[in-house]
Structures are given as structure tokens and as C-alpha cells.
């Protein structure tokens, strides 16, 4: 099978959906003439023209709201945030408009929109450019939230997101855009809300999603050498969460470590932990542990980043702790 970059997978998803449906358009900062701040939309202006690939001024609140209004009136916008850090100035339109419109109109107005862009840390960018708000958006009813971890999932899930009739938050990573993965030539869709068992194992379940799941793969390889078998579940969608896949795995391994790039309080890890203790309490042979970002703004210095972010060593330590080794 051919191998393509994460950014190419996203681009193909948008191109295919725009060829299929005239109402789909892409709007955001630098998406058109600049070919995308991270080259995700490279070539799309040339193919679709400036009616459907639209550069905006730096006005996230304004163009997020214009996207929601357009979706209420029959279009299917894909709104790109250069990063989700900048979505904070637009969050009123995401939470108060997109997520609420269907409910407060008694079902009359729906908002088939995708807000997409990179999330979380991406090198030495300091505090304002390194935040994972995945769990913030996942907290809000009315939204769906997708955080893919490889090109194959990214393409199939973005196509589903664009076709979905509900507002979808689609969170990528600057550090993944150049990563390659196998993606078939043929069209495919991946359903929203389904987790994927990325590695089968027997001793401990690792639950993660997005870019940071790589720390789980690295840890699992090391632990394999020591005879510890890790099962890795990629949630892929964090609203809704596929609890059943997690519960099935924990009932098999009896041990759970959750790895997430958000801050610890009120994280997806917290939520999954609640669900597992409630529905699989008797299956647990050890307390559930989590590896998250440190409970501080992410600083600039590499030593502090190393100390703050989840990494393979921290995951290995957590796994050994739940194994009592």
C-alpha cells in the first residue's frame, strides 16, 4: 500500500469531500494563497478557486461565527484554526452557537460544520502555543470531538466529520503533519465514536489518543523486552467515547494506564477512570494510573518540557507500578 503524510491524508479527505459536495468549503487564515500555514491545504485554491478555499483576516471569532451562520443556512463549512490555541478567541461561537443551536431552536437549525487544526505541544513554543484543549471541547454536549493519531485514521475520520450533520471538532498536531502512514488509494470512511485496538496485549491496557499515543508504542516495545505485554487502545474520538472497547480490554488485562497530553484535572483520563471503576471495578488488579501533562503552563526550556510532557519512560514507570514490578 502507498504511504502518505498526515497532512496529505487530511488534504485528500477535504478534496474528495469538496469534489463530492458543492456545499463544502474551506475557510481560515492562510489556507488559500499561502497554501496553508502547515501546507495541509496545498493546491486546494488552484483546484477549487477562491469561492471555496477562502483566506480570512486574523479574526477567529468572526470567521468561526460566519461559518456557523453559513452552516445554519445550508452549507457545510470546514473552518481551520491555525492552532486550537487561537480557537480560544472563537470559543463563544463554538460553544454558545454551534453546540447549542439545534437544542435551543427545538431541532430546527442544525450546524454541520468542522472546526479543525492542530492541538497541544509542538516543540519549544512556550505556554500559549502548546495547549491541549481536547477535553474542554469534549465536555460540551452538542459537539463531537475527534483526535486522530495516524494518516489512515485522519483521512477516514475527517471525511466522516465533513459528512456528519453535527458540529465536529477535529484536532491534529503540527508534529504529525509530516509523518507518513499507509493510506489506500480507494475511498473509505471511519465511523465517529469507535475506538481502535492499535496493539493487542495481555498484561496491561494503555488508553490514549492523538499524537501522544506514540509514547505508548515506544513504552510497549521496551516493556515487551521485559516480558510485559501491553494492549494499546486509540480512542480516536473523545466525544462520544467508545467505553465498551476500553472496558472489554480492561476485563481482559485487569490493569489500566491512561496517557493524555491535557492537564490532569477534569481530563479524558479522569473520565475513563470513572467509567472503568464504575463498570469494571471487580476486574481491576491495581489502581488505574494516568500520565498527563504536568499541572503547569508548558514552559520554553527543553529540560522543563521534558519534565512536563508524557514520555515513554513515564509510561513505562506507570505500567510497572500497576504490574507491581
Amino acid at each position: 500500500m502507498r504511504s502518505i503524510q498526515f497532512r496529505e491524508a487530511l488534504r485528500e479527505a477535504m478534496q474528495e469531500e469538496m469534489r463530492r459536495d458543492e456545499t463544502v468549503f474551506l475557510m481560515g487564515e492562510e489556507v488559500a494563497e499561502y497554501d496553508g500555514a502547515y501546507k495541509v491545504s496545498q493546491g486546494m485554491l488552484a483546484e477549487f478557486g477562491d469561492k471555496r478555499v477562502i483566506d480570512t483576516p486574523i479574526a477567529e471569532l468572526g470567521f468561526a461565527g460566519i461559518g456557523v451562520g453559513a452552516a445554519m443556512n445550508g452549507l457545510r463549512p470546514v473552518i481551520e484554526f491555525m492552532t486550537f490555541n487561537f480557537s480560544l478567541v472563537a470559543i463563544d461561537q463554538v460553544i454558545n452557537s454551534a453546540a447549542k443551536m439545534m437544542s435551543m431552536s427545538g431541532g430546527q437549525f442544525t450546524v454541520p460544520i468542522v472546526f479543525r487544526g492542530p492541538t497541544a505541544s509542538a516543540g519549544m513554543l512556550s505556554s500559549q502555543h502548546s495547549q491541549a484543549f481536547d477535553n474542554w471541547y469534549a465536555n460540551t454536549p452538542g459537539l463531537k470531538v475527534i483526535v486522530p493519531s495516524n494518516p489512515y485514521d485522519a483521512k477516514g475520520l475527517l471525511k466522516s466529520a465533513i459528512r456528519d450533520n453535527d458540529p465536529v471538532i477535529f484536532m491534529e498536531s503540527e508534529q504529525m503533519y509530516g509523518e507518513k502512514g499507509e493510506v489506500p488509494e480507494e475511498e473509505y470512511l471511519i465511523p465517529i465514536g469507535k475506538a481502535d485496538v492499535k496493539r493487542v496485549g495481555t498484561d496491561v491496557t494503555l488508553v490514549s489518543f492523538g499524537k501522544i499515543i506514540k509514547t505508548c508504542f515506544a513504552a510497549a516495545e521496551e516493556l515487551e523486552k521485559e516480558g510485559i505485554s501491553c494492549e494499546i487502545i486509540d480512542l480516536r474520538t473523545i466525544r462520544p467515547i467508545d467505553y465498551d472497547t476500553v472496558l472489554d480490554s480492561v476485563r481482559k488485562t485487569n490493569r489500566l494506564v491512561i496517557v493524555e497530553e491535557a492537564w490532569p484535572l477534569g481530563s479524558i483520563a479522569t473520565e475513563v477512570t470513572f467509567k472503568v471503576q464504575k463498570d469494571a471495578f471487580d476486574y481491576l488488579d491495581a489502581p488505574i494510573l494516568r500520565v498527563t501533562s504536568a499541572d503547569v503552563p508548558l514552559p520554553y526550556a527543553p529540560t522543563l518540557i521534558e519534565a512536563a510532557l508524557p514520555n515513554a519512560n513515564k509510561v513505562i514507570a506507570a505500567v510497572k507500578q500497576v504490574m507491581y514490578k
Binding site: 451562520g69 452549507l75 454558545n96 452557537s97
Partner: peptide, 25 residues
């Protein structure tokens, strides 16, 4: 009638977006 909106000014970009869709179509 695309609604009454409760966050002061929130309906202004929505109104522009509704018009955007009409122009697009």
C-alpha cells in the same frame, strides 16, 4: 427567523454567515 441569541453580539457574525451562504448559493 434564525433566532434570538443571548450572548451580546454573538448573532452578528452569524448574520454575516447566513448572508455568506446565500451569496455562495
Amino acid at each position: 427567523f434564525f433566532g434570538g441569541h443571548g450572548i451580546v453580539g454573538g448573532q452578528i457574525p452569524l448574520g454575516a454567515g447566513i448572508a455568506f451562504a446565500d451569496k455562495y448559493n
